[in-house]
Amino acid sequence: MGFKLLSKLLVYLTASIMAIASPLAFSVDSSGEYPTVSEIPVGEVRLYQIADGVWSHIATQSFDGAVYPSNGLIVRDGDELLLIDTAWGAKNTAALLAEIEKQIGLPVTRAVSTHFHDDRVGGVDVLRAAGVATYASPSTRRLAEVEGNEIPTHSLEGLSSSGDAVRFGPVELFYPGAAHSTDNLIVYVPSASVLYGGCAIYELSRTSAGNVADADLAEWPTSIERIQQHYPEAQFVIPGHGLPGGLDLLKHTTNVVKAHTNRSVVE
């Protein structure tokens, strides 16, 4: 069995187990497998329904001669939608809004960016022009300005110390501490036991640490421990890039980060 097929099978099995364990909360999309990078042309966006009122959005972007996937989250909030992270750029984010209108038909009224990198804030200006209120932590807003990236308009308070959590509509926002970046936030959907790890969490097929220019490698494993301790009931975990899975993604990420750190020390 090929690795790609095995990865998709694991996603399907995880979703099936969740649907059985929580039949009222989960209505997993039966329309197909989780979209992969090879299936999404740059400039297009796919939506994948995880649970009743919960979707991931998947886009792709060219970077350094390669094409990478990027995940975000959409959560229903009454007759409105909360968006977590842009679709990595203005063109993708405009396509995301169009796809949401086509498939869901509810307005996106608020959006949260989970850290300051372009795959999370690139497209904020498109959201703002569409009347979406954009939010991020003060740290993310400051770092985005320093980096020359787009800056969300509103500040999220109460997320300055490791372990801080605040309720934001249908989700809980959690600051686990520094990891992929010093400002990275985690998003949890309690009604569906869905954990969105953003770039602080890796997919299972990833074996290298990737972009760690703004990471705190020493603190990252401790931050992941905080996530595990705060959300032990999480059933569906979405990484910032690639295929979702279960809580095993947290341990896998820790292993990859520690291996990278150990290699760096040896070198």
Rank of each mutant, 00 (worst) to 15 (best):
G2L: 13
G2M: 15
F3D: 05
F3K: 07
L5D: 09
L6H: 11
L9G: 08
L9H: 13
Y12C: 13
L13I: 15
S16A: 04
I20S: 09
I20Q: 15
S22L: 09
L24F: 07
L24H: 15
A25N: 05
F26C: 09
V28G: 10
S30I: 14
S31R: 12
S31W: 11
P35T: 06
P35W: 11
T36A: 07
S38E: 10
E39W: 07
E39I: 10
I40T: 07
V42Y: 05
G43Y: 06
G43V: 09
G43H: 05
E44N: 08
V45D: 03
R46H: 04
Q49S: 07
I50S: 04
A51F: 07
A51G: 07
D52V: 07
D52E: 07
S56F: 04
S56K: 08
H57G: 04
A59L: 09
A59V: 09
A59H: 06
T60F: 06
Q61V: 07
Q61L: 07
F63P: 04
D64Y: 06
D64G: 07
A66N: 05
V67K: 05
Y68H: 04
Y68G: 09
P69V: 06
P69D: 05
S70K: 02
N71W: 01
N71V: 08
G72Q: 00
L73F: 04
V75N: 01
V75E: 02
D79Y: 15
E80W: 12
L81M: 11
L83N: 01
L83P: 01
I84S: 01
W88Y: 00
W88F: 13
W88L: 00
W88N: 00
G89V: 02
G89H: 04
K91W: 12
N92V: 04
A94G: 13
L97Y: 04
E101T: 10
K102E: 10
Q103G: 13
G105C: 07
G105W: 10
L106C: 13
P107W: 11
P107D: 15
V108L: 08
R110I: 08
A111L: 15
V112E: 03
V112M: 09
S113V: 14
S113Y: 03
T114M: 02
H115S: 00
H115T: 00
F116I: 03
F116D: 03
D118M: 07
D118L: 11
D119Y: 00
D119W: 00
R120L: 01
G123C: 03
D125Q: 08
D125E: 09
D125L: 08
V126M: 10
L127F: 05
A129Q: 11
A130W: 08
V132M: 08
V132E: 01
T134F: 02
T134C: 14
A136I: 02
P138C: 11
S139E: 09
T140A: 03
T140R: 02
R142I: 13
R142W: 07
A144D: 04
E145L: 09
V146H: 14
E147D: 08
E147G: 10
P152D: 03
T153F: 15
T153H: 15
H154F: 15
H154M: 11
E157A: 06
G158I: 15
G158V: 14
S160M: 12
S162A: 14
S162M: 14
D164Y: 15
A165S: 14
A165M: 10
V166D: 08
G169Q: 03
P170Y: 08
V171S: 05
V171N: 02
L173C: 02
G177V: 01
G177R: 01
A178F: 07
A178W: 11
H180I: 00
H180S: 00
H180F: 00
S181F: 00
D183K: 00
L185H: 00
V187I: 05
Y188H: 10
V189P: 00
P190Q: 05
A192G: 10
A192C: 03
V194E: 00
Y196N: 01
G197P: 15
G197R: 01
G198T: 03
A200K: 03
A200E: 02
I201G: 01
L204M: 13
L204E: 09
L204S: 06
S205L: 12
T207G: 11
T207F: 13
S208K: 11
A209G: 12
D216H: 10
D216L: 09
A218L: 07
A218R: 13
W220N: 00
T222F: 12
R226D: 03
I227R: 01
Q228P: 04
Q228I: 12
Q228C: 15
Y231T: 04
E233F: 12
E233L: 09
A234R: 02
F236C: 04
V237N: 02
P239S: 06
G240V: 02
G240N: 03
H241L: 00
H241M: 00
L243H: 12
G245H: 14
G245L: 01
G246E: 06
G246K: 05
D248P: 15
D248F: 05
K251R: 07
N255I: 07
V256Y: 14
V257D: 00
V257G: 02
V257Y: 02
K258T: 10
H260E: 09
H260P: 13
T261R: 12
T261V: 15
R263K: 05
S264I: 15
V265E: 14
E267R: 10
